[in-house]
Design a binder for these strands. Structure first.
Lengths: 202, 202
DNA sequence: ACCATATCGGAACGGATCGTTTCGTTTAGG
DNA sequence: CCTAAACGAAACGATCCGTTCCGATATGGT
């Protein structure tokens, strides 16, 4: 077998354009590193080592750590999260919250998102990436849920943004303080509060 | 001008106990550094330089960056924030939120708090410091506000914790995304939502 | 067929910070 | 008088930063 042993094969240029293999290797390495060590152990240096890539390759395609984190998170989220449509906002929120927290707990995505938020506290570029590029994307689905509720007359249309903001803040708070246990009663109470439903009678 | 007096070229030991001058100099330097450069430029190394202190002195008294940040923030907050008591939860929240956001905007405290939350995403120790030591302290006042409202019959007592959680999340979200503009209408709408007040008629 | 162009990984750079250790000095308390 | 602990200074090895070279590679336009 005079063949290229796959282990020590060098991944070279494929011409004057981005190499998809390199990109995939970098995203995979970043994902794994965050899963293993969290934000504390996340460095471009280590990602490059694991991906068998050069640091210039990473810096060429991702201007900031935040941009890299966003790509890693996006790849994960698309494949895992679906939108519930139960017919009532409070039960939509309940289902979505439990799915989201489970997604954050059981995949590297929770660590990735925490890293992204932390990174946004260091540089303005990272903050812009989070606020102006990442958040609007992730908000779109959520807004649909609330808009459907407004169409059903469950909440005033004028309050959609405020209620979405409350919901995002609720999730962030629990993510950032590492309290993502699936405390069903607490989640249900909060879902009802945000959806404007009267509490289930005791 | 008493600029910590140039005469203290060297602040030596005062015996086998903590030197209050060193502590004050370190806290002051940390505060100023965060105000000037934010979390990105905050390092123990630089704090030590500015304080004219040795790094071992800092590491001796503050096991983690979070502990140092907590002390800096606590000194600031006590002197600046008072509790409103307007007779209604929604107007209490309105007043408190505007004061808090102003406090975060107009003093180094916003940067300090952002740094503290970011730091809590790196190490478990910092997270514990934030969640178990810092947050409960800062929550106490807030809970009083909601308990008074429950006594007045504005909200069910069983919902106090959930509504406080929503309120904290709301503030964190705006702090972490650097949206602390005093948008009075938006704050008022959210205050009414959290307080369970019907929206002011359009 | 040729060649400019842009990519790739590797190596090294100067600089900064980390957390720790060593050292000599200073002072309180027993 | 002497032990104990704190102080600041300096240096340690290690890591990561972001950038800059380099030689090799393959595309795409001419």
């Amino acid at each position: 077998m005079p063949e290229t042993s796959p282990a020590d094969r060098r991944r070279s240029s494929i011409g004057a354009r981005r190499n998809p293999d390199a990109e995939a290797a970098i995203l995979t390495a970043a994902r794994a590193l965050l899963a293993e060590r969290g934000y504390a152990g996340f460095s471009i240096e280590e990602v490059a080592r694991r991906a068998g890539a050069g640091k210039p390759t990473i810096y060429r395609w991702w201007a900031t750590k935040a941009d890299l984190l966003i790509d890693v998170y996006a790849a994960e989220k698309a494949s895992h999260m679906a939108l519930p449509d139960t017919g009532a906002l409070w039960s939509d929120l309940l289902a979505y919250t439990r799915a989201l927290w489970g997604f954050w707990r059981d995949t590297p995505s929770g660590s990735i998102f925490r890293a992204l938020i932390a990174e946004a506290q260091t540089t303005g570029a990272a903050l812009s990436a989070l606020r102006d590029k990442f958040l609007p994307d992730r908000l779109r689905d959520l807004c649909h849920m609330f808009e459907r509720a407004a169409e059903r007359g469950e909440i005033p249309a004028a309050e959609i943004d405020d209620r979405v903001g409350l919901y995002i803040g609720f999730n962030w708070l629990h993510l950032l303080t590492d309290r993502l246990a699936d405390d069903a009663p607490a989640i249900e109470r909060t879902a009802r509060l945000i959806a404007g439903q009267p509490p289930s009678r005791a």
